[in-house]
């Protein structure tokens, strides 16, 4: 039920953002988020953008995994 999907913000107007989910464009509410910008990746849950996805953090997590080494 808490399933959320990533989407890219295309345009913003009042309390609504037009976002692209894998090329499919839908309007979502931005009532739960401030400071959204065009080009941001957001998580969409039941018609609302609930959080911005931080691309730098996404890369950092992968880098941590790549460099992980446990000796036996």
């Amino acid at each position: 039920m808490c399933l959320s999907i990533p989407a890219e913000v295309i345009t913003l107007k009042d309390d609504t953002a037009l976002v692209s989910v894998n090329g499919l464009e839908v309007n979502v509410s931005t009532l739960l988020l401030d400071n959204l910008k065009t080009g941001d990746y957001v998580l969409i849950h039941s018609g609302f953008a609930i959080e911005i996805i931080d691309s730098e953090e996404a890369e950092k997590t992968l880098s941590v995994i790549r460099h992980m080494r446990i000796s036996k």
Partner: peptide
């Protein structure tokens, strides 16, 4: 209105609207 904290803010926003 059903769901945990992921879903509840949307319901709250709508009640306030």
């Amino acid at each position: 209105g059903i769901g945990f904290e992921t879903t509840a803010p949307a319901t709250a926003a709508v009640i306030i609207q």
